[in-house]
Amino acid sequence: MQNNLVQYIYGIADNALILGQRLGELCGHGPNLETDIAMTNIALDLLGQTRSYYQYAAKLTGNEATEDTIAFLRSEREYKNVLIVEQPNTDFAYSIGRQFLFDVYHLLMLEQLQNSSDETLQAIAKKSIKEVSYHKRFSLDWIKRLGDGTEESHTKMQNAINDLWTFTDELFYQTDADKAMVSEQIGVDVTQLKDTYYSIISDILTESTLQVPDLKYFQKGGKQGIHSEHMGYILADLQYMQRTFPNMNW
């Protein structure tokens, strides 16, 4: 059970880490100071959540595990984040699209996780809900602005949603560890969230004058540690210091 729980935590926390890392790339390069500050805030929240989850996972793992060995010293196949959070900051519409498609899922998931029979996960979920509600409000407002803004922004936003749509189905895929944790009433049964998710997303897209993509084929793999080609580069940056200068205090 312990190992399943650790794997389950990775499945949640790695999303926050990798999305936080992606948002960190944008700091100082936003379209204006206000969005720069807001997106950095989201990154800070996500990395804060990451630390809480990893500290718990480190405790469960024992030995010499710490939040940093978990964050920096796993191989690519050991990261269990979904593919959507790895997707690059192609432009502001992609960053917002990625955020929106993830935030809606993230909030639905946390609302269930706060009922977990695991007290630590319960507590982290409760704290995170407040933060993620704000993330969702931010990304949703921007979906509307870009979707129903100018012709150019509408096109860019639609393109981003079309491209990112293929990664949404994976959010509701369950690994063996997920299933084991659901049966223990520790984990969230994400399959139950799928309809609500697509219904919320469709409403917002429609309100924003955007089309809901009609796609039959989806990508998955992240939850099993089979990532997109972007992931190696993300980890090259993320792990650079720990790999170059092992076993040091910073």
Partner: peptide
């Protein structure tokens, strides 16, 4: 690069 965003 942010101009279209501000315009929107």
């Amino acid at each position: 690069k942010g101009e279209w965003v501000r315009d929107a």
